[in-house]
């Protein structure tokens, strides 16, 4: 049994580090994009349209992963696309986390009518198809980075609120909370000083998962052409373009898809790895 556990821990450790490595590389690429991208991601050259990646004959030196139908460099667009993806992941993920966790904490700890109102809203939110809701919101707010972030926060706060509410309820019933109250802590003080630290590991795991979801939502919105302006490089926009020219130039779809796949996988493995770290049973 002990052996099994240490194996699980070693595997969890490996995926934690691999995920962190990929995300770290991606962050670097995003920050250094203007300096490390080999070409201008917006530069079009119709004579260089649909060039294949370097190992296929007909490729052009300098265009490492080939070009799209307008002759834009795929690699440079992926590197620049990382900026939008990571910005959305960080900003939207964090705001969603703060809003959702706060509401969940309030509902789970205060109970009563606060819980009733928040739970009713969660129920209503759960009855909306999320993708449709996000597309609708972007139509209302207009395309753009800020709209995407707002849409993600508005739709996904329930992910945090539901889980944190349940956790806060469970924690609230424990003896240490009662003793904190007896020792003279106020309700708000108990919530922030006693409950929150105990719910925090769960929140961190959810936040990591949410960042992966945010990257996907941005990609989906660019895919239906509702993200930021169509010229700016985003992975979803590249995928949408690649989907239409899939039989002529598969690389336009494949490379952004692999990047997106690894990024989403990394965020979620990071979350799962952290969960194992925090889980007292496995520890």
């Amino acid at each position: 049994m002990l052996d099994g556990r240490s194996m699980i821990r070693r595997r969890a450790g490996a995926r934690l580090w691999l995920s962190a490595l990929w995300l770290g590389l991606l962050c670097l690429a995003a920050i250094l994009a203007p300096w490390i991208a080999p070409k201008d991601p917006l530069a079009q050259d119709l004579f260089l349209g649909r060039l294949p990646p370097f190992w296929i004959s007909g490729s052009e030196p300098g265009y490492f992963l080939g070009t799209d139908s307008l002759g834009r460099d795929v690699l440079s667009r992926i590197i620049h696309g990382a900026r939008v993806a990571l910005l959305v992941a960080l900003v939207a993920g964090t705001i969603t986390c703060v809003v959702g966790a706060t509401l969940g904490l309030l509902a789970g700890f205060l109970r009563g009518w606060v819980d009733m109102v928040i739970s009713r809203f969660i129920d209503i939110w759960m009855a909306f198809p999320p993708v449709l809701f996000s597309i609708l919101l972007i139509a209302v707010l207009g395309p753009g980075l800020i709209s995407i972030i707002i849409a993600i926060v508005v739709i996904d706060w329930t992910r945090f609120a539901r889980v944190v509410r349940a956790e806060a309820m469970a924690q609230g019933a424990m003896d240490y909370v009662a003793s904190a109250r007896v020792a003279g802590r106020g309700r708000l003080g108990t919530m922030v000083r006693e409950i929150l630290p105990n719910v925090l590991p769960t929140i961190v795991v959810l936040l990591t998962l949410e960042m992966g979801i945010a990257v996907i939502v941005e990609a989906i919105l660019s895919f239906v052409n509702l993200s930021i302006s169509t010229d700016d490089p985003t992975w979803g926009g590249m995928i949408a373009e690649g989907r239409t020219s899939i039989h002529q130039a598969w690389w336009v779809l494949v490379f952004p898809l692999i990047t997106l796949f690894l990024t989403v996988l990394s965020f979620s493995q990071l979350g799962e790895g952290l969960k194992d770290r925090f889980d007292p049973v496995l520890r």
Partner: peptide
């Protein structure tokens, strides 16, 4: 870990 949208692609 990977959502339906990516599996579809």
């Amino acid at each position: 870990s990977v959502p339906d949208f990516l599996w579809g692609l």
